[in-house]
Structure formats: C-alpha cells, structure tokens
Amino acid sequence: MPAISRRTVLGMILAAPAFGAAAPARDGMGLARAARAQIGVTKAYDASYRAIAYPQGDVLRTTGVCADVLVRAARDAWKIDLQQRIHEDMVRDFDAYPSRRTWGLKRPDANIDHRRVLNLETYLTRQGALLKRNAKRVAGDRFDDPLPGDILTWRVWGERPHLGIVARGPEGVRVVHNIGFGTKEEPLWMFKLHGAVAHYRWRV
C-alpha cells in the first residue's frame, strides 16, 4: 500500500467539513409551501381549548386557528415543534411571556400556549427573528418588502391578534392565514383596514 504524503493528509483535512459547523439557514420558501399545503385541508376555524398530546400535539387538521398555520408549517417544512420549543422557553422564563398579564395564568400550558399569537410574537422576538414592530397603529398592508416565509402579525377588528405567513413577495404580496374560514391565501391589501403590528423573518 503506497504511503500517503503529509501534503495529501493536509488537503484531506482542509477539504473536510468542520466538526460542529452550523447548518445552513432554513429556506423561507419551504415554510411558505408548507403553509400553502394546508389550503383545502383546514376548512374551518375553532378557537376552543383542547387537551392535546405533547410534544407534536395538534387538533384535527381540518380545523384550527391562525397560529396553527405557523405551527403546522414549521413541523412540516422544518421538523420544528413550536409546541415543545415554546413550552420549554416558558418553563425557563414564564414571565417573559404575556400569559400571566393577559390571561391570568400561573404556569405554562402546553395545550394552548403555542396556539396564541401573543406567545408566538414573544418567542419569535426572543429568537432574534423580529425585523420591525410598530409602536403605533399602521395600516395592515404596510410592511417593508415581505419575503416568502416571513411571518406577519396584526390586530384585527380592534385588538384581536392575528398571524399569517407570506406566500409571495416582495411584489404582489400574498399571505396564507386562517381568519375564520379555514386556511386561505389572500392578497396583503385585504388587511389595509386592520393594524400591522410586527414583521418576522425566522430562519433558524
């Protein structure tokens, strides 16, 4: 067997990927496609409290709320379980979340915490995904260059939190969401009369 030169060994080491190298950022298009795939599957809206499994718990996919669009898309596209991630983060720092202030809760609840927009906003902000949050009311179609996979939040019909995933952008922006009639894809301009709150780009 011929001897391997020191130069060859060095070249092999340099060519090999570094141990523990960071994985590439997840693609926003994948999240957008997974959100779109829910159209025609989730045909209703139901905000009722349900006891569900943990982790990977869900209500029937034929129904759900706006937050479920993101939770399901993250699982389908990226194998990320927001139910588990948010629960674990709330166990670490419960008071960083609005559960006590808003709903009077005293501890995390894995059945519902990940299905609330206010908790998702908090988690995404803590993950460094926040691009912009409006300090005052802004028309609901005013977001700066949303890209596929970006997450947008609003306050609709007054102060009701709502969430959607950008399916197309930055031109002719369209959003996948469930505002009461199942998962649908609609143009961003339809939110003009509501209040834009925050714009997230979550790629981890």
Results as ranks from 00 to 15, higher is better:
116 R>N: 03
117 V>S: 07
117 V>E: 10
117 V>T: 10
118 L>N: 12
119 N>L: 06
119 N>H: 00
119 N>P: 01
120 L>G: 07
120 L>P: 10
121 E>R: 13
122 T>N: 09
122 T>I: 04
123 Y>E: 10
123 Y>W: 15
124 L>A: 01
125 T>Y: 02
125 T>R: 14
126 R>I: 00
126 R>L: 13
126 R>P: 00
127 Q>G: 03
127 Q>S: 11
127 Q>Y: 07
127 Q>H: 08
127 Q>F: 10
128 G>I: 13
128 G>K: 05
128 G>M: 09
129 A>F: 11
129 A>S: 14
129 A>G: 06
130 L>W: 04
131 L>V: 11
131 L>N: 06
131 L>C: 02
132 K>Q: 14
132 K>E: 14
133 R>M: 02
133 R>H: 07
133 R>K: 13
134 N>Q: 12
134 N>L: 03
134 N>C: 02
135 A>Y: 03
135 A>V: 11
136 K>S: 14
137 R>D: 14
138 V>I: 15
138 V>K: 10
139 A>M: 07
139 A>D: 11
140 G>H: 06
140 G>C: 09
142 R>W: 01
142 R>T: 10
142 R>A: 13
143 F>G: 01
143 F>R: 07
143 F>D: 06
145 D>W: 10
146 P>A: 11
146 P>Q: 04
146 P>K: 08
147 L>E: 13
147 L>V: 10
148 P>H: 12
148 P>E: 11
148 P>C: 11
148 P>F: 07
149 G>V: 01
149 G>R: 03
149 G>M: 04
149 G>K: 05
150 D>T: 10
151 I>M: 08
151 I>P: 04
151 I>A: 05
152 L>Q: 09
152 L>F: 11
153 T>H: 04
153 T>C: 04
155 R>L: 14
156 V>K: 01
156 V>G: 00
156 V>D: 00
156 V>S: 00
157 W>K: 15
157 W>C: 05
157 W>L: 15
157 W>Y: 15
158 G>I: 13
158 G>A: 12
158 G>M: 13
159 E>Q: 13
159 E>D: 14
159 E>S: 14
160 R>P: 01
160 R>K: 14
160 R>A: 14
160 R>T: 15
161 P>K: 10
161 P>T: 04
162 H>D: 05
162 H>M: 11
162 H>T: 03
162 H>R: 09
163 L>K: 06
163 L>G: 05
163 L>I: 15
163 L>W: 10
163 L>R: 07
164 G>C: 08
164 G>Q: 06
165 I>T: 06
165 I>N: 03
165 I>S: 04
165 I>R: 00
165 I>K: 02
166 V>M: 07
166 V>K: 02
166 V>T: 09
166 V>I: 13
166 V>L: 07
167 A>M: 04
167 A>I: 03
167 A>S: 14
168 R>S: 12
168 R>F: 01
168 R>T: 11
168 R>G: 03
169 G>W: 01
169 G>F: 01
169 G>H: 02
170 P>H: 00
170 P>E: 08
